[in-house]
Design a protein around this nucleic acid. Structure first.
Lengths: 165, 165
DNA sequence: GCAACCTTGTAAGGCGTCCTGACAAGGCCA
DNA sequence: TGGCCTTGTCAGGACGCCTTACAAGGTTGC
């Protein structure tokens, strides 16, 4: 009757476990975000806040990093523009393109979001052990660099498909 | 120019990192599943394969564990019945209810899926280090038990909302 | 300098997954 | 027996994302 998690029935696949953790963490983040002045930001908008900074980024580039189509990202950006978080400015180097960048409010929201993520992570460090969470982050960063380099800002310019070995 | 991941810009929030890992792992799983004889099983169907075993489970119970509505799970089960993986048998104890259980083919698929998940996890253990992946699993199992006990077969009967401390 | 071709972003429409609201049929309890 | 809860289903809709098609602007070869 008593069996360890390694036995057949109560075993949960690793992707499922990762998803549970991700969802729980993300839920804590969203619960606080929704009560802030940025409560109208939805999860979908994240792909813009994650990748856009400084001078701005083209739609195509956001789409590539986020692994979405340009059309999808276009819709998301429309939404963000309507809400006053983002703006499209013409690319001086290419008259077809527009650079998507954050408004002042958008940058405030981005900074707030980052701090909130850090806060939630710190809470988990207290809950589950600082070293364990630090080790978790370290491993996951290594995994991300290998499995999804396009999504890692530092590696976004590296050659793709290194992970297919 | 060179900055460590802990500095501002290249820092990725923990939920994002967890999601990247989950997606990458899941993609490896699906790539193999799709080429098997069970290629018509979609990710959505997972909630049934994850929770149903033996005598079967009521729609309501699946929905509760999967955190979906009964209607959604109903649709998924319809689909699985059509494809020959699941069946509804009347609950002998309650004439309103039906027990959702797997067909023989469904059980074969479930067993195949579990083995495939284990195989992919083993591959990652070789890629990133067996001890690190083992530690990852251990931590994640602890997290799951606390953050989503309803989704853990062993704990599905425990009292809910223990994690709100 | 110009035609052929590629890239950037947009418009229109569709599909999959999940939701809310409403309801019939069956169980539970005074 | 009547009122209330539970189980599962039907209908309709929201949302996030996709595919197809296209106009406007670059780019390249001759």
């Amino acid at each position: 009757m008593t069996r360890s998690p390694k036995d057949t029935d109560a075993w949960i696949p690793l992707p499922g476990l990762l998803e549970i953790a991700s969802d729980a963490l993300f839920a804590e983040f969203r619960a606080e975000l929704e009560q802030s002045e940025f409560g109208d930001i939805r999860p979908t908008h994240g792909c813009v806040f994650r990748f856009v900074q400084g001078q701005g980024l083209r739609l195509t580039d956001i789409a590539e990093r986020a692994k979405l189509t340009k059309q999808s990202v276009g819709e998301i950006v429309d939404d963000l523009v309507e809400r006053g978080y983002a703006q499209r400015i013409p690319d001086p180097d290419d008259r077809r393109a527009k650079l998507i960048c954050l408004t002042e409010r958008g940058e405030t929201a981005q900074a707030y979001g980052r701090k909130l993520f850090a806060k939630v992570e710190k809470r988990w460090a207290e809950r589950y052990g600082a070293e364990r969470i630090a080790a978790l982050r370290e491993l996951l960063e290594e995994i991300a660099a290998r499995e999804a380099p396009f999504a890692v800002p530092e590696l976004a310019h590296a050659e793709p498909e290194l992970a297919s070995a």
